[in-house]
């Protein structure tokens, strides 16, 4: 997970000061646990998207 975190920060172009890295990494691990809870959203209707054929029948 440490490598993944470093890769994500690098991809975002963010240089994490050394003295701030441990705290941020701990929070990242905690956030990952929260993200795992989101997988249950399945039946919500607002994002069901149906594209009717352009120009009609």
């Amino acid at each position: 997970m440490d490598t993944e975190f470093d890769m994500l920060m690098a991809r975002a172009g963010i240089t994490v000061p050394d003295e701030r890295r441990d705290g941020l990494l701990a929070a990242y691990r905690d956030l990952r646990a929260a993200v795992a809870l989101l997988e249950r959203a399945e039946a919500e209707p607002a994002h069901v998207f149906r594209l009717d054929p352009l120009g009609g029948a």
């Binding site: 994500l8 994490v16 705290g23 941020l24």
Partner: peptide, 14 residues
């Protein structure tokens, strides 16, 4: 500040 940086930078991982 340290706290704001840590909380805000975390968003880069979403």
């Amino acid at each position: 500040g340290r706290v704001a940086f840590q909380r805000l930078a975390l968003g880069a991982t979403i």
